[in-house]
Amino acid sequence: MDWAELRLAVPRNGGAWPSDTPRIAGLSSFGVSGTNAHAVMEAINTDGAPASSPNRRALAYASDHREAAGYVAGLYEELGFDAVDASPLSESWPLEHPRPAFPIFPVTKERLFAYLTTARRAA
């Protein structure tokens, strides 16, 4: 593979994101016990709003680890989004695409919570 020709970077330390490129990143975690996780993320930083804003966008998260869940919730809040906890992972299936709690449009905390609590498993 010719890495020089790819529009791909493997950062080794923090730095500014080029302003002329989309903010899309991949994250992979390979656990010793065989647990692997992969995510592709695209910047959503234009939708953030102060905590008291009406119709503030909500994002859901799920984890079996309280410390990790708290970190993600804090990060969402810091970026201007309401955090909705869908933990534990075993019960986070409503967040899967194309379930109702996987909205492709911005939703409020109340609506996202309603989607999570009213979702039904497929038969």
Rank of each mutant, 00 (worst) to 15 (best):
V84K: 01
A69R: 14
T108K: 00
E5I: 09
P88E: 03
R57P: 05
S29L: 12
R121H: 13
N36V: 13
E5G: 12
F81M: 06
F113D: 14
G74V: 06
S87L: 01
Y71K: 13
G34W: 03
R7A: 08
E91I: 00
R7V: 09
F30C: 09
T118D: 04
Y115F: 15
N36L: 08
L89W: 01
S90D: 12
A9Y: 01
W17T: 02
A73D: 04
K109G: 11
D85W: 12
R23N: 06
S52K: 15
A69W: 03
M41S: 06
P11A: 10
A37F: 04
R57K: 15
A39Y: 07
E91D: 12
L75N: 02
S52R: 14
V10R: 11
N55D: 09
W17C: 00
F30E: 01
S53V: 12
P54Q: 01
N45Q: 13
G80Q: 07
K109S: 14
P88W: 02
V40E: 09
F102D: 12
Y115V: 04
A83K: 04
V40K: 06
I24S: 12
L89D: 03
Y76N: 08
E78R: 08
D20L: 06
A51W: 06
N36P: 05
P22W: 00
A4K: 14
L8D: 02
Y71S: 08
A37R: 05
P22A: 01
T118H: 09
L79D: 11
A68G: 10
A49Q: 07
D85R: 05
P106S: 00
A114G: 02
G74K: 04
A83H: 02
A119M: 04
A9E: 02
L8E: 12
E5K: 15
W3Y: 12
A60H: 04
A119Q: 03
S52F: 11
R56V: 04
S63P: 01
A4V: 11
D2Y: 08
S63K: 05
A60K: 06
P88A: 03
D47H: 13
F105M: 10
S87F: 01
F30A: 13
G74A: 06
E110W: 04
G34Y: 07
R57L: 15
A9H: 03
E67C: 04
Y115K: 09
R120D: 13
A37D: 05
V32N: 10
M1T: 13
